[in-house]
Simulated assay, not measured.
Amino acid sequence: MSEEMGFLARPDGERVAWRRVAGEGPTVVWLGGFRSDMAGTKAEAIADWAQARGRAYVRFDYFGHGESSGDFAHGTITRWREDALAVIDDLTEGPLVLVGSSMGGWISCLAAVVRPDRIKALVLIAPAPDFTETLMAPEIDAAGRESLARDGVWLRRSDYGEPYPITTKLLEDGTRWSILPGPVPITAPVRILQGGADPDVPWRHALQLAQALNSDDLVFSLIKDGDHRLSRPQDLARLLAALDEVCLD
């Protein structure tokens, strides 16, 4: 079964790149992380899973990410939430399983709150709700704060490549969408996979989200030696097993 590709036009003229596999059951929607894209290891593994099992699957790149248009430095949680909702509303029908990685875990929760009738389940990988305020802002040093005050942007060091811009607009906008300490009005089943050795999202942060969600059908899996990406073969196996479980009709 081939994977369809295309672009979703947004009202401001920007385009959101997407890929879609036709299939049965709830549509699995991949929501990637901050500065990641839909060609990553986990997103590709789910595409292979969907094609092997005949499951419906949609993945996309946010504004300023991957194959989508736009300047990453102009992105905000508001904008990326809007991209996710546009993909859900325009490219899918029926029940959904949202799979959110890192920032995508936050965006998944924001989408699920406003589309509750569509959500069959959530699978969250190292979810990072409120990361702009809770995880990122506290690490800004004096020079970074001076840069933000002067230029409206701070170049944040990355373990995964070149430094990247964090703007005052992103940090301020993130507070609009804070969901912790909760409660978070999501009652659908939730599966959370979290690395115990994650340097970016401490496992206690993900656990705080688990405790804030209203779902009674929630399983929090701590992978003690797991990192942030959780892309090792054994991590991918856990992710696909969680999808098999929540996608059962």
Rank of each mutant, 00 (worst) to 15 (best):
L170F: 14
L110D: 02
S158V: 02
V99Q: 00
A111D: 11
L171F: 09
A137F: 11
L124F: 08
P185K: 09
P185F: 07
I88F: 02
E67C: 08
P163L: 09
R176H: 15
R176V: 10
L91H: 10
R81G: 10
A84D: 12
R145L: 12
A149K: 09
P95D: 06
G182E: 10
W106S: 05
D159H: 09
A73Q: 10
D151R: 13
F72G: 15
H65G: 14
I179S: 13
L110S: 04
L91P: 08
E146Q: 15
D130M: 07
W80T: 13
A111S: 15
P127Q: 06
D141F: 00
P116F: 03
L135I: 14
P165T: 07
T92K: 02
G152F: 12
D130T: 04
A84C: 10
D71C: 14
G104Q: 02
P129Y: 03
L96I: 02
P181A: 12
T168W: 08
I186S: 02
V114A: 03
V184T: 14
F131R: 00
D130K: 04
R81A: 10
L155E: 14
L180M: 10
H74K: 11
D71P: 11
E139C: 04
A73W: 05
I179L: 13
W106I: 07
E82W: 08
A86N: 07
A112W: 01
G174K: 01
S147M: 14
P138D: 11
H74P: 15
G105Y: 00
G70N: 11
P95G: 07
D117H: 08
E172V: 01
S68N: 12
A86M: 01
R118Q: 01
G70L: 09
R157P: 13
